[in-house]
Design a protein around this nucleic acid. Sequence first.
DNA 1: TATTATAATTGGTCGGACCACTCGGCCACC
DNA 2: GGTGGCCGAGTGGTCCGACCAATTATAATA
Lengths: 244, 244
Amino acid sequence: MTPEAKKLSPVNRSRLHEEIVGQIQKRILSGAFKPGDKLPAEREVAAELEVNRATVREALKKLEVLGLVEIRHGDGIYVKNFYESGNLELFKNILYLEGTISPDILSGVLQMRGIVVPEMAFYAARNRTKAELDELRKIVAAEEADLSLLEKDLALHHLVARASKNLLYVFMLNFFNQIFRDYGFLYFEREENRQKSRQFHRDILAALEKGEEEKARRIMRAILEYTEKAIYAYYNTQQKPHQG
Amino acid sequence: MTPEAKKLSPVNRSRLHEEIVGQIQKRILSGAFKPGDKLPAEREVAAELEVNRATVREALKKLEVLGLVEIRHGDGIYVKNFYESGNLELFKNILYLEGTISPDILSGVLQMRGIVVPEMAFYAARNRTKAELDELRKIVAAEEADLSLLEKDLALHHLVARASKNLLYVFMLNFFNQIFRDYGFLYFEREENRQKSRQFHRDILAALEKGEEEKARRIMRAILEYTEKAIYAYYNTQQKPHQG
DNA sequence: TATTATAATTGGTCGGACCACTCGGCCACC
DNA sequence: GGTGGCCGAGTGGTCCGACCAATTATAATA
């Protein structure tokens, strides 16, 4: 029940154009602005928000890249159907729409991760080079010394992605990491998890060394299932909005 | 030799700031600007390009959303490592860097599609609602009447994505469609393909109706393999840059 | 030497002006 | 009746010059 806000309201200071992006994005994602709708002219929006037109334009440029609006010279600004977008950056914004991640979407992301990442490991076992194996060994060795495990963990997965020789895996992995960034932090606070992580990584390394594709996939799947529990556990103690 | 061009397509009416985006993006992706590098100040860039600073700023705002640069108030503009990006919009730009898609990356995309989309069908069979089945039947019926097959095909896949109840599938599917948009056009020019498509869609519909998850996945996989051949075939007759 | 002012640099916002494109209405012409 | 040209209002695109705000580098000071 949010009956407010048919009108745009003046804005706070600090990256003014970001604030504008937020306001317009919110109205589009919430359905207040529907696909095909024509936004007020730049000059009108500027007047309504009591900001300069240049600032509005910078905001609109961002919204355009996000895929939320289409700008037509001499015509106007039109709302695009974000349901037809393939922009994961926009998906992330939707994820945090209400300040807190909806359980539905979270499980959707985890599901996709569970599908994509094991295959990544599969192809990494198939396509890794000797140089990549060397790098991998260094990371695993550093982990045994218990040095900045989170950082090393990210590096290892990134390396596996590159080893798959499919750039799309790199992008997808980064996408997942960006979403679960916060969770990783807490994950490595438990000694139990740290040990588990080291073991998993030794196993992954072994599988890649021997080129055991199925085994690499299986291990990666185990890793995901293990961390998934941690994510859900953290999520359930944390369903408050992380910002007011 | 593609004797296409029955229709003239909208002309590339590139705006000035888009040109700037292109130039800077190219320098970053080609490695001329490396991660961590500091770009010249806005005023310098503007002077160098002989354009107004406001125009440069609009370009920079776009590059920021793309994840190629980071702008720090009072400090400067820094190049980000696109290899750590999770932004598929950026990936698409990389895809077309040289004007033509590199075979490596193309096969990488097809590989990811082959992994993701069948799972989407699997979950669609599990989670589809009666309303969605109704919509699906309408689409299949329209296809029997041979009406705008390409459009109907896109709609059908989009519906399957929604039926999976995982918004990420919708985004991923859109991403793939955007990349293969051009190929779909030619695909439906062959009567052979049109018939095959209708048959596939009848099968998918049947699987979803009965909630046969594995079967839905199998059929989807068959569709992908079939269309993949068409894509490669077209690609091999078309490896010229599509713009000078 | 360490700390604190101060200046210089750089991104952020402003306002006002003019250019370029689109669209709709009007009109002459076929 | 339809076609094409013309024009004017509306709207996005670019430009100029100015000032604000955050950061960094530098100089002054204790």
